[in-house]
Amino acid sequence: MTNLVDRYVFTALRRIPEQQRADIDRELRASIEDAVDARVEAGESREAAVETTLTELGDPERLADRYAGRPAYLIGPELFPVWRRLLKILLWTVLPIVVTVGVVVQIFEDPNIGKIIGGAVSGLITVGAHLCFWVTLVFAIAERTNTPVKVNWSLKDLPRYEAQRAGLGQMLTGVVWVVLLIAALVLQQFTFTDVPLLDPANWSFWWPVMIALFVLRAFYYVWVYRLGATTRTVAVVNAVLTVAWAAPLVWLLASDRFFNPAFQGFLDLDGGNARGWMNTGLIALVVVGAAWDIIDTALRAERTRRGLPGKVPGTGGSYDFS
């Protein structure tokens, strides 16, 4: 039978590189015996002395880490900010792209609303977990191999915080959205599903009007970018454009002329009443979204007019800059 000291030493030393093991074994045992002897001399029983000594030495795996000079953390303070920044960027860019592509592929293969939502959710979790795991693994290895991951920070990396300036990114995002919406509207008629999702009867008037409004919207984004600021005129034009697409859309939805009555994909849910729910939900979404856009732009225009400071992004709007 092995005694406590043996068990302690074996547990500590199995995690020590082999070439150091014999030497540390001998030294650790001698140190333990010295401490035990001192306690016995002070009047403790041998058994109690061994127990106290080993308890004071503590977790043998921690001791092994210290002997081997291994870090007792996954990613240290040097690498942590780099790890956090990279992971944040990946989760905001790669994750949505992969999930969107997955949804589009699913729509082509089998446009079943349940499968689309299920695929999106499981894709979100799986891809998210993979991103977190692999990035963390690479950083943990870099930490343990002392790989110099140096990201030189300089003053150039500071954001500019130019108040009210309508940025290039904002314009590009807007234009790309418009192009995607037009593509989706046209393609749903021909490719996504056997029977088009949206009512084909509207191609005689409303869908071309929508496409025209989307194109106007793209010009609006370019115009705002070249203007460089959210003026009062911008707020008015934005309100007109927004009402121009939101009002007919709400009317189409409310009078059940938006979705194609021949499209059977909704019948899987809620005994066929799903189309009604989709109509109501979309009306709410359109009204809230349009109102938000109009009010937000108007507020920004008002702030520009008064020369008030804008908000620092990412602070929840409580932190101003001018």
Binding site: Q20, E27, L28, A35, E56, G58, R62, R66, Y67, G69
Partner: peptide, 12 residues
């Protein structure tokens, strides 16, 4: 100083 800090320190 604790034994589990000192002994590895000596080797380092």
């Amino acid at each position: 100083v604790e034994a589990n800090t000192l002994y590895p320190l000596l080797r380092r």
